[in-house]
C-alpha cells in the first residue's frame, strides 16, 4: 500500500463538478495529516487542460483514451481499477454521484478493497468514516481495514472552495488497458425547459411524499401563490408524475438557494438535502419530530401539513 489519497475527478461537458473540489479539499487535509500524497485521477480524451484546475493535488494522473471521450461506466471502472491496482493508494475518494455510484463498487470488487458508502465525514487521520444512512436518520462510523479502501462521498459534505486551487501540479500520463467495451455512449439528453425556473425563485414551497396525493397539490400551490413564490418538490412527487421534473430539488434534480424554502412533508434524505441546504431560510413542517430535515432547517414545525397549510394560508 502506498501513502497516496486518490480523488477520482468527475467532469461533464468540459466542467469539473463541485464534488471533485470538495474531495480534493478533504483529501488535502487527510494527506497533510498522514504525510501522504494527494493524487487527482483524471480520465478523458483531450481533457488534459482540466489539470490546470487541480492545483490542490500534489500530482495528477491523466489517462487519455478515445474510449474515455465521454463518461462510460464500463470504461471508467476498468481504468480506475487498473490505476488503483498499479498504485495501491491507501484511500480512493469517489463522489457518491451518478458516476461515482458506477465506479466505487467496481473498484472495490476488482481490487478486493473495503468500500464505505455515503460518507458525510472522514477523520483527518483516515481512521474513521462517517456514513449517513437510513435516509439521514442514522450516522454510522466505520473503521476501514488497514490496506486501503474506497470511500464514496455525499456531495455537499465538505467545502468546495478548499479544493479549488488554480495551477496544474505535475501531470503523470498513464495508460489503461480498457479493451473492448459492451456499453457505448450514445448521447446526452438535456432536460426539457419547465414553465418555471425554480433556481431563479426567491420563495419555494416544496412538497414531499407527506402531501399524499396530487389532489392535495392545489392547497400547496395556493400557499405558494400567496407567498409570491413557486412550488417545488422532492423526487417521489416527480416519480409519481404529480409534478414536472423541472420542479425537483436535490441530487438528481436542481440545486436551489431561495430566500425562503418551506419544506412540507419532506423527510430530508441526503439526496434532497444536497439540493437545498444553502437556502437563506429553511422552514420545515413534518409530523415526525425525528425527521432529518430538522437538522438543516432554521425553524421546525412538528405539525400535520393538512392543518398547517390552511392555518398559514388564512393569515396571508
Amino acid at each position: 500500500m502506498s501513502n497516496q489519497i486518490f480523488v477520482i475527478v468527475e467532469h461533464l461537458k468540459g466542467n469539473i463538478e463541485d464534488i471533485t473540489f470538495e474531495m480534493l479539499g478533504k483529501g488535502k487535509e487527510i494527506a497533510g495529516a498522514t504525510g501522504g500524497e494527494l493524487v487527482a485521477v483524471l480520465l478523458g480524451s483531450g481533457a488534459d487542460d482540466l489539470a490546470g484546475q487541480l492545483g490542490a493535488a500534489g500530482k495528477v494522473i491523466y489517462v487519455d483514451d478515445p474510449q474515455l471521450a465521454e463518461y462510460n461506466p464500463q470504461a471508467y471502472c476498468k481504468a480506475v481499477s487498473a490505476l488503483v491496482a498499479a498504485n495501491q493508494p491507501k484511500m480512493v475518494l469517489v463522489g457518491n454521484t451518478s458516476m461515482g455510484m458506477d465506479i466505487a463498487g467496481g473498484v472495490s470488487v476488482a481490487n478486493n478493497l473495503p468500500f464505505i458508502a455515503y460518507a458525510s465525514g472522514i477523520a483527518n487521520d483516515g481512521s474513521t468514516v462517517t456514513s449517513s444512512l437510513y435516509g439521514g436518520k442514522m450516522n454510522v462510523d466505520s473503521s476501514p481495514g488497514g490496506d486501503g479502501c474506497v470511500v464514496s462521498v455525499i456531495a455537499g459534505s465538505f467545502p468546495a472552495d478548499a479544493g479549488r486551487v488554480e495551477g496544474s501540479p505535475a501531470v503523470e500520463t498513464a495508460s489503461a488497458d480498457i479493451g473492448d467495451l459492451s456499453i457505448r455512449f450514445k448521447q446526452l439528453i438535456e432536460p426539457e425547459g419547465g414553465d418555471v425556473d425554480i433556481t431563479a425563485q426567491e420563495i419555494l414551497v416544496s412538497v414531499g411524499r407527506g402531501i399524499q396525493s396530487d389532489e392535495n397539490l392545489p392547497m400547496a400551490e395556493e400557499l405558494a401563490a400567496k407567498l409570491g413564490g413557486a412550488i417545488s418538490c422532492s423526487r417521489p412527487i416527480v416519480d409519481s408524475k404529480w409534478l414536472a421534473k423541472t420542479r425537483q430539488v436535490g441530487k438528481s434534480g436542481l440545486k436551489v438557494k431561495p430566500k425562503l424554502y418551506l419544506a412540507l412533508g419532506i423527510s430530508g434524505a441526503p439526496e434532497h438535502i444536497e439540493g437545498m441546504k444553502d437556502a437563506d431560510l429553511i422552514i420545515a413542517v413534518n409530523t415526525d419530530p425525528k425527521a432529518p430535515i430538522f437538522d438543516y432547517a432554521h425553524y421546525g414545525v412538528v405539525q400535520d401539513l393538512f392543518d398547517f397549510i390552511p392555518a398559514l394560508s388564512s393569515k396571508l
Partner: peptide
C-alpha cells in the same frame, strides 16, 4: 472489509429552532 464502530442519531433539531403550539 470494514467494521462498524458506532451507530448514532444525528443531532436532530440541532439546527432548527422548534416552534410549538397549535397549527
Amino acid at each position: 472489509g470494514s467494521t462498524v464502530a458506532k451507530m448514532y442519531k444525528p443531532e436532530t433539531g440541532a439546527g432548527a429552532e422548534m416552534i410549538d403550539g397549535s397549527a
